[in-house]
Amino acid sequence: MANGDGEVVGFDNVGLRYGTGKEVLSDVSFTLFPGSFYFLTGASGAGKTSLLKLLYLSQRPSRGQIRMFGTDVITLPRARLPGFRRRLGVVFQDFRLVPHLSAYDNVALPLRVAGVPEADLERPVTDMLDWVGLSHRSDARPATLSGGEQQRVAIARAVIGRPDMLLADEPTGNVDPEMAVKLLRLFEALNRLGTTVVVATHDLHLLKKVPASMIMRLDKGRLSDPTGVLRYPPKPQADRRTGDDRAEDLQE
């Protein structure tokens, strides 16, 4: 398996179970490379969200090894995990916006937590809200935003810090097709700047929109490899199979 050089994330025989239940992830092994774009697909309950939880360091695996940015995060002292989390951008399936903060403050939160001075916040936060089409709602609380608007705020919050790795759980589930494409363009733009992107989705049409992406598929907690990316790890941006081809592979 990968030794950690040139990888963003490495999973070796990872298993995850909650409590004493059966494993929701079994023998998961893969490597994510810098600057690559991955779709994580699978039916509902296949384990996509559990795998993302391991990736955004909200859960420790029951077994196996996980390396992130060249460090074994399983044995890493808890106090060092925040430094790793700040290198990640996460779009949660349920958005997880702070309910009593405005859209502006929710988007600014990762930068504030990272200690960015207030004077340096306004421009990027305003630009980001403008880009996701919510500049006119910057003072609105999440409860007054529609599902799609909340999702766009969640995405803006995830990408504002220009993370090394972006993890998105069904990020286009509540937006119209036009906005979905727009958001994917944002992810691609980040990806071109070197951010590794992992998008969990069961919407196979999305795969066509990002031709350079690679696919990981989960089935009952086990990872399969429809595009060969796990067996033949690509160089960054190397896999150029068309989205149409890969979507057809999956539908088969």
């Binding site: 960015v116 990408v159 980040l190």
Partner: peptide, 16 residues
Amino acid sequence: KPPVISRAINRGLAPF
């Protein structure tokens, strides 16, 4: 063009 912060984000454990 999507906005991306060009300034490097301070990723230290600065006070909040």
